[in-house]
Design a protein around this nucleic acid. Sequence first.
DNA 1: TTCAAATTGCCCCAATTGGGGTATTGATAT
DNA 2: ATATCAATACCCCAATTGGGGCAATTTGAA
Lengths: 220, 220
Amino acid sequence: MEKIKIALVEDSKLLLARLAEGFSLYDTYKIVGKYSNGKSILDALAKSNRENLPDIILMDIEMPKKNGIEATLEIKDKYPHIDIMMLTVFEDDAKIFASIQAGASGYMLKDEPFESIVNAVHELYNGGAPISQSIARKVLSLIKSNQDTTNNGHPLTPDLILSKRELELLHGVVNGGSYTTIAKDLFISPHTAKTHIKNIYKKLHVHTKAEAVRTWLGKL
Amino acid sequence: MEKIKIALVEDSKLLLARLAEGFSLYDTYKIVGKYSNGKSILDALAKSNRENLPDIILMDIEMPKKNGIEATLEIKDKYPHIDIMMLTVFEDDAKIFASIQAGASGYMLKDEPFESIVNAVHELYNGGAPISQSIARKVLSLIKSNQDTTNNGHPLTPDLILSKRELELLHGVVNGGSYTTIAKDLFISPHTAKTHIKNIYKKLHVHTKAEAVRTWLGKL
DNA sequence: TTCAAATTGCCCCAATTGGGGTATTGATAT
DNA sequence: ATATCAATACCCCAATTGGGGCAATTTGAA
């Protein structure tokens, strides 16, 4: 039987090595790539031929060069068939939502026992959407509070839910684009780009592109 | 004899614990604080009374909330007598320069043997400026290339040397300020703020605040 | 002391940005 | 079927930004 091809993207060399070692113990899995940031896996994927592409990517969120959410966005854009599971220490609401909306199919915490992670990968490969218990609880409660929102008018969790399209716009902002250039990249009118960015500002509670970049890159 | 008071600021819990443990073996040193990012040590220093302030801070560079360079800038501004040694995995030219200009007195790589770090701290306490061998070489070569610069007109390393003042301006930009608000914070005219920021743009090869923030926060 | 750099401050002006609207379309969920 | 939301697109306008240049003063190093 064909082995399940896995790529790892993980900031910490220690954890990266540990994961690779762990999966190598199973003959069901084959590690086809180890990367330390979003940029390097994107570069590598671009250079791979089709049969070497991974089936599943385990992706860290906080990484230098390019974070896991932006990387996920780009990978799912170019290689929609690859399943991505976020593997992170974060239980941060915004990051969970952003990951899911960027196209991640699973969301596991790093401190889960290794067996849980292996099970999650297996589940993912069979079409599931594995999520850590604690994350699942959070997601549910967030969705619930969003339903409240729809009912009473003012959002309880306004800044969490950037739409997929908005993430793409934000990506443009982070890369230093103007309304015009961002619009060009996404094949929309500059007016539309502006509208989206205005909406992003409201959700992130910022008023300028510089603030948006800082907030998105996660430094306070 | 009075123990030398040391504070540690380090992202990685593992390394933080290892350092603290290491220093606790010497009765010359006393760990008076352990922090995981720039913001938390600044908060803590603000709350300390004078006799509890550390003599020396070992500071990581890449950290969430507030990075080591900005933290150094602020600490040296408020507590100029505290000596700060950068402790990092980075051999990145710009970061080395920025650290030194922010007021760091030493610059050691994390992979040095622990004894070297202890020696460096001791050296620092006695007025020295300990720098890892590999860093020292880099600094020297950079300075040399800058002398070239002065002579032949066009800078070989233009983007590395933000002045101390420029770092303060950049700090304002990263925090989302406008020319006006940044100027107010630094007690200068908005015109001056603009001039500085224009100069920063040239050195960083960027053209907008958003790009400056992204570049400074170190994501490409 | 003397010269270069850093810091400060200002001028002009075109381009961009941010904030406030409104409106149409298509998809989704009720 | 129909209400809601996401995505698209446009309007106006004040404020800010970015780029160009110029010049005085303070600081530091040779």
